[in-house]
């Protein structure tokens, strides 16, 4: 069982490879459900029933892939952007004739997704064609942080952390903790939150 309180940041500013690796591990775990080997490793269990891997895969899907009471959408756009609709040209009994715009929150593919992709490209990175994911997904933003720190680009890392990740990630993690019944994803989220708080502390100095 993980101790969730009184954990001090264990990863220091000087330990960049380790911090980068943490980002990459969290990125992997948020990107898709773990393989049996990965699951064995991170849970410290030498023997694992196939059904256990499947159980975690189902928990992952319930959280991140299908709609439902437990669903969380881990995208920056969903948390930070509003989608604006121009209704001035609609032939509808429901609109007054004057032009107006309607904004709704919680959508995919907002300006944040374009903005982070631009940051990735400025850093010489882009989404792999096989990744099938939007650029502002939590896993991709974490992976980008990992890649920057791997290259010791801490200033860029700090900027991205503040400009993007920190804007929404805590809300998202809070929602995951509230919604999921999965012990695995509860504890993963706890750990990620602690790690990001320690990162925030480092980036704030």
């Amino acid at each position: 069982m993980i101790q969730t309180t009184a954990t001090r940041p264990s990863i220091t500013a000087g330990n960049l490879p380790s911090r980068a690796a943490s980002y990459l591990v969290f990125a992997r775990l948020m990107r898709e459900a773990p393989s049996t080997d990965l699951l064995k490793f991170i849970t410290g269990q030498e023997v694992l029933e196939a059904s256990e891997t499947e159980k975690v895969a189902v928990q992952y899907a319930r959280l991140f892939l299908v709609p439902g009471d437990e669903a969380v959408r881990p995208y920056e756009s969903v948390y930070c952007d509003a989608l604006t609709i121009d209704t001035s040209t609609a032939c509808s009994p429901y609109f007054p004739s004057s032009s107006h715009k309607i904004s709704l929150n919680g959508y995919l593919g907002g300006p944040s997704s374009t903005a982070v992709r631009e940051v990735y490209r400025q850093a010489g990175l882009d989404l792999a064609p096989a990744s099938h994911e939007l650029p502002d997904h939590l896993a991709i933003e974490l992976e980008f942080m990992g890649r920057l720190l791997e290259r010791r680009q801490t200033e860029q890392g700090k900027m991205f952390f503040h400009d993007h990740l920190a804007r929404w990630v805590y809300d998202c993690l809070h929602q995951i903790k509230q919604k999921t019944d999965s012990g695995f994803y509860q504890s993963l989220t706890e750990k990620l939150e602690q790690f990001l708080l320690s990162e925030q502390a480092l980036f704030s100095t």
Binding site: I2, T43, G44, F184, L188, K191
Partner: peptide, 8 residues
């Protein structure tokens, strides 16, 4: 199932 801190 939980994450093992040391392994992690």
């Amino acid at each position: 199932m939980q994450l093992d801190r040391r392994q992690f």
